[in-house]
Structures are given as C-alpha cells and as structure tokens.
Design a protein around this nucleic acid. Sequence first.
DNA 1: CACGAGACCTGTTCGC
DNA 2: TGCGAACAGGTCTCGT
Length: 274
Amino acid sequence: MPELPEVETITRYLRDGNAGLPGVLGRTILAADVLWERTIAEPGALEFIRRVSGQVVETVGRRAKYLVLRLTSDTLLVHLRMSGDLRVELEGGEGGAHDRVVFHLEGRLRLVFNDARKFGRMWLVNEPESVLGRLGPEPLGADFSAGAFFDLLRGHQRRLKPLLLDQCFLAGLGNIYTDESLHRAGLHPNRLASSLSPVEAQQLWAAIRLVLNEGIRNHGASIDWVYRGGDFQNTFRVYQRTGLPCPVCGTLIERRVVGQRGTHYCPVCQPEPG
DNA sequence: CACGAGACCTGTTCGC
DNA sequence: TGCGAACAGGTCTCGT
C-alpha cells in the first residue's frame, strides 16, 4: 500500500499513535529480531541488531516513500516497496504470518515490519543522504512550484507516465497517484514531458498536489488483501476502473501497459498524442 | 538519454 | 474442482 500518502499515514500513526496504541516517539529499542535477512539492506543483519539495540527514537518523519526514524546515533530508513507495513503492537501477542523484522520497545510494545512479498528494505546509517541523496523534489514541498515543475518537465524527452514514476525526477508518486493525477490534468500517459505547455504543466502540478493531499486526507488507499484502513480507493477516477465509465465524461476507462506498468486512462479526457 | 526485459517475492484472481 | 497464467501500491540492473 505504499505511495506517498500511505507512507505519510503510517508516519503519523507511528509518531502520534493509532487505534488505541501509542506512538514510538521517545521510546527505547530494547532488542530486534530479523526474521528475513534480506530485509536489512545495510549494515549486515547481525550488526544491525547490535547497533539498533539501546537507541531511542528521537523523531519520526518521511522523505518520499521512505520512513525516516532518527535514533540516538543512527538513522533508520524503511522503504515498504509493494507490500510492506509498519505497525505498533502490544508485546506478547501472536506474530503475524509475514513479519520480517520486530523491534522490541520499552513499555511492552513492539514495532513490527510485515511484508508479504519481501521487497521491503531498511537501512541503519549514519548519513541518511547516502540513501536519500538522489531523490527528486517533494511534490508537496513548499519550494516545489508550478514554474519549477515546468522547467523540470521541459528538460526531458520522456513519456509522462514513466517520468512521474521516476523517483529521481519527482519523489513520492506511484502507480495509483500517477494515473489519477494524469486524469485530473487531462493528459495522456504517453505525452512527451517536453511537449507540455506552461498551462498544461501547471494543471499537472495542481493535479498531483490535489490528489496526494486527498490521499493523505483519506489515510491512503486500501486495495486487495493489503489493507490498512484508508478510504482513498473510493474516490479513484481511473485506477483499477477499466471498463467502467469515466466520472467526468462517461467514456469507458481503458487500460494498457506503459513503461511496464498497468496504466488506466480516459481516452476522451486524456487524448493520445498524435 | 530513453526504454524494455528480467529479477526480486508471495498471494489473489481470472480463464479455461 | 483444479491448475496455470496474469496481475499486484516498487525499484534495481542490464542490454540496446
């Protein structure tokens, strides 16, 4: 479930608490279990466990799709990839089927990383920029202006869909929010970035920010069996709506593969480039 | 530089 | 009913 709004939702849950359970801010990590070694990208699993134990969670934040937990002397970065989830549980209960890493916290709590597909990764590093350094701008950042976005787009001879998914270009969009943003902006996924007019770039900029903010307001999207309680899926206009009417013009939504990703669009609201 | 294929993984759903 | 194919919210590496 993890694009920017879902990661932001989890960040807030971990920071402020959720569903009657407290957050992890200020808590000491007593110990950690690594149940799937490859989840730990850096350092090795043994050193990860040794080093993380005893550190206190000083801040909980987000950069793009990464959770950023500043600890006493290191930073813990978590990327949920396709199916990862992080939640606080009471110590003592049954473990989940796909728990990969468990942090035991003071106060009889644990922070559990659950990830059915095992794509998720975490890093324990001194210098977070070594992992986050190549990311593009935050789409909801105060310094991300429509004008700056137009300038970025102008420099790329790439189709919009794969470009918006490229985290070096813009950090945080995934398949859902890209499709929804392009529909809101009335732009075909195959449009060349450099072909956008300043007005079209401004419309895409506004659509991206609107859709992401809607997603956050709805606590993210919950689809399929990877459920986390968000509601944004109920407001999808094109994503996973193949064959259903476009809510704007009534034309049936189409699906095709663009840049190896399933892509949903309205053939009338989003005219294909010639 | 831009793009496609393949890899990493497990679980669900679809079509025959 | 059963079984394989297709598909899934992500990203990396490789070859053209």
